[in-house]
Nucleic acid binder design. Structure first.
Length: 801
DNA sequence: AGCACGCCGACT
DNA sequence: GTCGGCGTGCTC
């Protein structure tokens, strides 16, 4: 499902100093020892008040504060003496703002103990946390993200610090009572009421602070006598924040079951040596571990972390959203004493608990999806991004950051290395190794001398190879043989649902989503017609809604329909389907995978979630039902995605002693991406594709930004889109920057959730001028509320939909 | 995002 | 004359 979180406004809390970023891998901001950037740079845009308003500048302690809701600031506040020694960048504060009652929560981004201000400043009303939730390095990272991705800094703070941490989920403020023998002499105790005496005696005997609840149970009274004693000043109290008793979190403790450590191959040892050197050098360095599927990248990660743990350092391992298999998790948990696994299904209390564990420094390894790049390890020594090419590392809501880029920025500010791993690196990372921004480490062979699987292309245009349905004759035969040999099959089809179009054969009407204009997908379970771009869902109409014709036709192929076909073709095989429909319940993922591992399932079919990371030695056949599905997207990354998908799913076979083979069905067998994938030729593909991208100055050669404008009224939306793009043109000409502007035009998804959409693509050889131009153009661009139009800026977009 | 200001039309 | 629509601007 696509989301389109809007309401962009230009925000520049702190432009980084120094050189503009040119490419993904330029180590520029946020650099160490540049603490004063914020105040100095913001002045550039300060509209100075007219001279008669100038008040004599006096020295005061000033805090610069940003907000996660509008207005985002930054605003300056006077720091009251009481909190002067505690407030730091990263502290949360409550401040007065406008006429709002109760004040507003904000984040302090800068403090100046001897600042001067032209305005009369209001005072901070309260410091909300004893210890800042964000250390200075993370504050620098926030400001860098806010600048680069053009998001309000306050909103970036909210992304960095989980809401469960901000609200202290799973903890409670408890009051503890203590009895002091000096106050409660025998004499005084004797004069109390019987219940109060009992309470006093018990507490004196216990000689430890207890909560009212504990005391009342122990003594067998209500809480009233305790309160009375406290009121008389005979009991002292203290308040503490504590973990709730209801916490269900258990984390795996190393049970001593040693994982068999394999001997490293020569190339694994070489790579490890380089990584260890980089870690010890305490310098920033980006390394790309390019290892074919099954070459043992995870083992290299583990060894590298084992090494840095010896120095008391910790590591972050980022993994794609859905590929955090219990397998991977288990491997790390067996090899390290203290692992924190972050995942999307955690409860708020659990998340908060893990965050505190990580911050306390007891955690050696953090494993998680893109947001784990913000994990607050106090002694971070290495950031690893596994499957670094994966699209889920880019967030598709504001702030639209890419975890790879953020990881490099964070590593840069700490002076630590970043390790990117993939069998099919993103062209950005590949290009970085060619320009010296990253070092390439190769694992060219699979472990234990296993060969890469043979890949056979089946040309679906040739009628002879195509029987009725989605499965060609060669693939049918291969599945049959595999099952006969007691092997297992994986079939990939990158579309869920049953039928991708519902069309009337009489009048040609296609049932479409009223909010998005996209054809609805028929889901057979429950007979629903669903929009895959929004939540729209209706019962599949039995007649044509346009002409009442009784005989509507289901066209196109989804995983549900494939499942039906596979079951019909191979009635004796056990078939399981894996897509986001069958994997809705937590744990279902693991259930299917363990059934597959144990051999209870012969054929596993599904969407791309089966293409990643699975390691099952008995998979002898992988079938790709339609390799072209991603190829004809109106998107400069279409070829790259196709190559990645085919290569990754092909890598799921040939992992045991019995070898493996791959059958790829395609309507364009001559396409370079599909050809290269069939030869396992990443380098050939990458070099070829780099030439293509160069022709149009697409990434990694140049920088791209996309502006999406959406609104309820088509003409108004288009008018505002044109106005905005016009401003960008004017700003570009003013600044004399080399920027190509395409659009505004309707994107492939021209309507989404009932809103009309327009977009514009901006290209520039360097990201710095591009960002500057957009920032300047959007600076004072206001849209009247009545127009109901919003816009978002997407820096380094991953798709053009 | 709220909230005030101020400028116009419709009304007791 | 006053009430109230909403367009515009400000919040350190």
């Amino acid at each position: 499902m696509l989301t389109d979180a809007c309401n962009h406004a230009p925000h520049d809390t702190s432009p980084p100093s120094g050189n503009a970023m040119t490419h993904d891998f330029d180590h520029d901001p946020p650099h160490r020892n540049r603490g004063d950037d914020a105040s100095r740079q913001v002045d550039l845009f300060d509209k100075s008040p007219p001279p008669w308003e100038l008040v004599a500048a006096e020295e005061t302690a000033i805090a610069r504060v940003v907000f996660s809701q509008s207005p985002h600031g930054p605003y300056d506040y006077a720091i009251p003496d009481a909190i002067r020694s505690h407030i730091q960048p990263g502290s949360r504060v409550r401040v007065p703002l406008g006429r709002r009652r109760g004040g507003t929560m904000g984040w302090c981004i800068h403090v100046d103990m001897a600042g001067k201000s032209r305005h009369k400043l209001r005072e901070i009303s309260e410091l909300l946390d004893e210890e800042p939730l964000c250390d200075p390095a993370l504050v620098r990272l926030v400001l860098w993200i806010a600048h680069y991705y053009q998001a309000p800094a306050g909103q970036v703070f909210d992304t960095l610090i989980p809401s469960s941490v901000r609200s202290s989920a799973g903890t409670k403020q408890k009051t503890y009572f203590r009895a002091d023998p000096k106050d409660l002499t025998e004499e005084i105790v004797a004069g109390l009421s019987p219940k109060q005496q009992a309470v006093a005696r018990m507490l004196l005997a216990a000689n430890a602070p207890m909560t009212a609840a504990q005391i009342s149970i122990q003594v067998g009274c209500t809480e009233d006598p305790i309160r009375r004693l406290h009121k008389k000043g005979l009991l002292s109290s203290e308040r503490r924040r504590e973990q709730n008793s209801g916490m269900t979190t258990r984390w795996q403790i190393n049970d001593g079951e040693a994982e068999k450590t394999h001997h490293l191959t020569d190339s694994q040892s070489d790579a490890l040596k380089q990584i260890n050197q980089a870690v010890e050098s305490e310098k920033t360095k980006v390394m790309l571990l390019h290892g074919v599927t099954g070459s043992g990248k995870t083992e290299v990660y583990i060894r590298a972390i084992e090494h840095l743990v010896k120095f008391g350092r910790g590591a972050i391992v980022l993994v794609p959203e859905i590929s955090l298999t219990p397998q991977t998790r288990g491997r790390f948990e067996r090899r390290f004493d203290s692992v924190a696994v972050l995942h999307s299904q955690m409860t708020p209390a659990e998340r908060h608990f893990q965050w505190q564990r990580i911050r306390s420094g007891e955690v050696q390894v953090v494993i998680g999806p893109r947001s784990a790049v913000f994990a607050p390890l106090p002694k971070l020594g290495l950031i690893i991004i596994d499957e670094e090419h994966d699209g889920s590392f880019k967030q598709d809501t504001q702030p639209r950051y890419h975890a790879r880029k953020v990881a490099i920025a964070r590593a840069n500010s700490l002076g630590i290395p970043v390790l990117l791993g993939s069998a099919t690196p993103s062209l950005e990372s590949w290009h970085a190794t060619r320009t010296g921004h990253a070092e390439r480490l190769s694992l060219p062979d699979r472990v234990r001398d296993r060969a890469m699987p043979d890949v056979q292309l089946v040309d679906m245009r040739i009628k002879d190879d195509r029987t009725v349905g989605a499965i060609s004759r060669p693939l049918h035969q291969a599945v049959q043989e595999t099952i006969h040999e007691n092997g297992q099959c994986i079939l990939l089809l990158n579309r869920r649902g049953f039928a991708t179009t519902i069309q009337c054969p009489s009048c040609g009407h296609v049932v479409a989503c009223p909010d998005c204009d996209m054809p609805l997908t028929h889901h057979r379970d429950g007979g629903k017609a669903m929009c895959h771009y929004c939540d729209f869902c209706i019962a599949t109409p039995p007649w044509c809604p346009a002409c009442r014709f009784d005989g509507i036709r289901y066209g196109g192929l989804g995983t549900q329909k494939l499942e039906v076909e596979v079951k019909a073709r191979f009635p004796n095989a056990n078939v399981a389907r894996m897509d986001s429909d069958t994997m809705r319940r937590p744990g279902s993922h693991q259930k299917v995978l363990s059934a597959f591992r144990s051999g209870k399932i012969d054929i596993l079919l599904g969407t791309q979630m089966i293409a990643k990371g699975l390691d099952f030695p008995n998979v002898l056949l992988v079938g790709v039902i339609n390799a072209d599905s991603a190829l004809h997207f109106p998107d400069f990354r279409a070829a790259e995605r196709t190559f990645q998908l085919v290569t990754q799913v092909a890598g799921r076979t040939g992992r045991g002693d019995r070898g493996g083979r791959v059958i790829v069905q395609t309507y364009s067998p001559e396409h370079p991406a599909i050809q290269a994938a069939s030869r396992h030729d990443y380098i050939g593909f990458a070099e070829d594709e780099l030439v293509n991208r160069k022709k149009y100055n697409y990434p990694p050669w140049g920088s791209v930004a996309r502006i999406i404008i959406r609104g309820t009224e088509e003409e108004t939306t288009e008018r505002i889109a044109e106005e905005l793009v016009g401003r960008i043109e004017a700003t570009r000409d003013l600044l004399k920057h080399e920027i190509r502007i395409l659009g505004p035009a309707p994107p492939p998804i021209a309507r989404l959730r009932g809103k009309f959409r327009f977009h514009a693509l901006l290209q520039c050889p360097e990201s710095g001028p591009l960002g500057e131009t957009i920032r300047r153009a959007c600076q004072d661009f206001r849209i009247p509320e009545k127009d109901d139009v919003q816009y978002v800026v997407d820096i380094d977009p991953m798709d053009m939909l």
